[in-house]
Nucleic acid binder design. Sequence first.
DNA 1: ACCAGTGCTGTTACACAGTAACAGTCCGAA
DNA 2: TTCGGACTGTTACTGTGTAACAGCACTGGT
Lengths: 167, 167
Amino acid sequence: MATVLKSFAPPAHDHGRCIKTALVKAERACTASGKRLTPLRRRVLELIWNSHLPVKAYELLSQLAQERAQAAPPTVYRALEFLQDAGLVHRIASLNAFVGCGEPLAGHVSQFLICTRCGTVAELAEPALSAGIAASAQRLGFKVARETIEVEGLCRDCQKAERALTR
Amino acid sequence: MATVLKSFAPPAHDHGRCIKTALVKAERACTASGKRLTPLRRRVLELIWNSHLPVKAYELLSQLAQERAQAAPPTVYRALEFLQDAGLVHRIASLNAFVGCGEPLAGHVSQFLICTRCGTVAELAEPALSAGIAASAQRLGFKVARETIEVEGLCRDCQKAERALTR
DNA sequence: ACCAGTGCTGTTACACAGTAACAGTCCGAA
DNA sequence: TTCGGACTGTTACTGTGTAACAGCACTGGT
Ligand SMILES: [Zn+2]
Ligand SMILES: [Zn+2]
Ligand SMILES: [Zn+2]
Ligand SMILES: [Zn+2]
């Protein structure tokens, strides 16, 4: 049965809560796996969670630079690398951007729905899709190690908005 | 039923034939859709088809620069944009690289198997996968416009090679 | 013949994305 | 105390991609 980890965030919701729970889960995930969520890394994660939109590395850098004068590209890229390895953020290859992971404790496949109008990203976790890919691959003798699924389209709200325009 | 457009190219095969048929199909696709495959565009396509490996834009540029002294980044990026729009090449987002499309006349979904050892890329066309994605998306009210599926792993030959090493 | 518009390429100059390499700091283990 | 490892600072670079303008060829109308 298909399970959706994170659905599209409603336009107006208590996002402070999203941030808070994301940070708490991150702390837990790190202590559980013996990794260190340093102030810098924590701050970068927090910046990423400022919205449900994918964030570019250099946006993070400029925000960070307002707090830490010394911030340079390696600063943010190292933090991002750590956060990715810890499963706390995902990289969206088709956008060169990063989003926070809503379920860092669960196993992560990378399946994303990206709304091209409002920019928000939703993460899926459909074992059936992964299974289908694995099956197709196996028919070619191919052994899957990592999958990248990035689907562009329109979220429900943006479809409504589009229809309203063309009416 | 699943159909495989292009399987992994055998290590040694008549690749001149691959190039030739790719160019012929490209000509056809362009005349059919009223697009112009200019010498520059044709040459870039030919360079991409030099192998079944994904090619980086700046590799193309340096090859091109040996023939045309004036070649600059826009030269190659504009050709690539045209070729993509014409469905003659695909961009692999996770690699920042480009591969020729084996079936430019058929509709293109973007489903790729990427061998992390030998680097070759195989293109899939599994309607079942696309259907599965569309179904999952619809459950969230999401309307799919474009899908990116890039699967990394090991091709059959490279699995054999790996096993031989660890034996 | 003239002109305007369009599509293709040349050219310059950037902006954005990511990494290598080395230097300090801190801290816990031997 | 000393060593080593993890983290961050710092410099400098490579790689990826685009904006903007200029020229040029072709086409279609006048
Ligand atoms: Zn939220
Ligand atoms: Zn939207
Ligand atoms: Zn071939
Ligand atoms: Zn291989």
